[in-house]
Amino acid sequence: MSELKKIATRDGFGEEILKLGLENPEILIVDADIGKSCKTGAFRKELSAEYHDDKNQYVNVGIAEQNAAGVAAGLATCGKIPFVVTYAVFGSLRMCEMIRQQICYPNLNVKIACSHGGVTPANDGASHQAIEDMGVLRTIPNMTVVMPADYNSAKKLTKAAAETYGPMYLRFTRDAVPQIYDENVEFVIGKAHQIQDGKDVAIIANGDTVRLAVEAAKVLEEKGISARVLDMHTIKPLDVEAVTACVNDIGKIITVEDHNILNGLGSAVCEVAAELGKGIVKRIGIQDQFGQSAPYERLLEINGVTVEEIVKTAEEMQK
């Protein structure tokens, strides 16, 4: 896998949404002026009325995210499948109440597809780093919350999102991340993808941290610790069955996420374990603190979101 070039998951989204839009005229992009960096440029070029008299699948409402959510809701009531595209901070927090009232409450088929998830907009600083988005949106009824781990899974999950009715939040990375999956791997929204089985510790990760989980599992194997690795791309609806199996089969779980440790993947897994009344969960993620302008890898390191930290935690859990 190390031979493959790194690629941002927003690129996977951009390529797949163009393909889907060409196949299905009801699929729309609703941009809010940052289409270029959210990779909707090709879609605009191929499917916008600006360039083609017979195409009309592209809308740009300008720097007006709240309105973008409302316009998308109105479009969805007329049978359209709008993908509202912006950065994760704005697509979750700026639009939050519009998502709740106009999209989730009426259960409309609107997808919020956001680049710049987690600390991947590294140099932009704290204002652009989305560390609360998935947690905030998972508390809204009817909402599905997804973060793919790499380029191919981003494509697969974008396609699955378009084919699944209902409000959905898709979170992509700005930065390039290693490729984990080949194009034949299948993903089901709401079902964890098991990368490898193991018996001593379960590492449950999502998004850009899945690669860290995979690497940590290799290091652990050399140390004689066998790890089950799950890509929990969907944190809502959470694959409770898969988490329950980790609790019952192994009992020692590490969660890893590029998100605040509060209310994201780690919290969701803890909820399951706590209700089962057994197992121990250690959360690795953003330590409830704002970021700063710094390299992406460095921001993860500051928060202990590293292969070394996962390995150390797994070793300690064996004692």
Partner: peptide, 14 residues
């Protein structure tokens, strides 16, 4: 919030 939704419906009509 309603005007944005109404605009979306009108846009779909167009």
């Amino acid at each position: 919030q309603g005007l944005a939704c109404a605009a979306g419906m009108a846009l779909a009509g167009k």
